[in-house]
Design a protein around this nucleic acid. Structure first.
Lengths: 158, 158
DNA sequence: CTTTTAGTTCTGTATTTGCAGAACAAAAAG
DNA sequence: CTTTTTGTTCTGCAAATACAGAACTAAAAG
């Protein structure tokens, strides 16, 4: 079973790695995350990961620490075993996504500053800037509303 | 007036440039975009931009073409004037944002593949993966609903 | 035709990024 | 104590990025 799906797993890891990379992480971070996604069992030691991915210890260490800093990965330990068993932390994954979707940077605030600083000689241009700001604010509100909706939905289920 | 706010404008351009850069563009692209935001008048020639930013022609050319490819900038021409006057295209800006918010690549699809490929030996892990997928799908739906809401809102206003 | 203008494309380079490999550290094992 | 294990941190390099400057192009002006 493991051997039959091993190739598929590797391919999946590559594809997921790229997707995570596009979300703004380093390539190695994406691969480490991906390896923990497909891993069966879902927890792996430092050098399980290193061997599976064939990358250096420093890359694994940096990646795991980056992921742990964002609470996307944590680890367990077993009695009488010095190793740490790293595993995905799904709640951390979800809050990471919330963060990424949610606050759209300083842009709206900066755009407001722009409009304030502009002359009123080109009202049509200023109006379209205001509309852009309006759109961003609207989306921010809608998104945080959606997140709350999701959370109350989850609360009801439990 | 222009001279008193000139410094403020330059600072704003830098700050906006960085914000745009963080959104995944090259530094020079961010600055060109920003310079068109604060520019009064809102349209500028190629070498207005070059002189204002103090960067090379190639950088300006590449940046403008990148922005035009995404329809975030366009240009007008004046009769008997060979120059192009570049300006921000607010609708393009907004649709660019829609695309960027409108989410998140192949990830949910890949996660579904992961779940399918996984054994059922660790049901709790699989369950939490499913919840993550659910969250992403939920947010995608909510976001596109919000965008539609915005669009009908805009239609009514006109 | 030649020259100028307005921009594009190419070539080289400085900077940044991302990782390997080695040196290092801390704690446990022997 | 010494050795082994489980990582971490540092040093250096290879590749990718982003831009400058120069060469080039197309169209208009003269």
């Amino acid at each position: 079973m493991k051997s039959t799906s091993a190739r598929h797993a590797k391919e999946l890891v590559e594809k997921i790695g790229i997707a995570v990379e596009k979300a703004g992480f380093q390539p190695a971070v994406g691969r480490v995350l991906a390896s923990l996604l497909v891993s069966d069992p879902p927890y792996r030691t430092f050098d399980d990961i290193q061997r599976f991915l064939g990358i250096s210890k420093s890359a694994v260490s940096t990646a795991l620490n980056a992921l742990m800093a964002r609470e996307m990965v944590d680890y367990i330990t077993l009695p009488g075993d010095r190793k740490r068993y790293f595993q995905l932390a799904a709640p951390g994954l979800i809050s990471q996504m919330k963060r990424k979707i949610g606050l759209h940077s300083a842009l709206p605030e900066l755009l407001r500053e722009v409009v304030k600083a502009r002359s009123n000689k080109y009202p049509e241009f200023n109006r379209s800037l205001l509309e852009t700001i309006e759109f961003i604010s609207f989306m921010e509100k809608e998104i945080s509303a959606a997140i709350e909706k999701w959370e109350t939905l989850k609360l009801k289920k439990s």
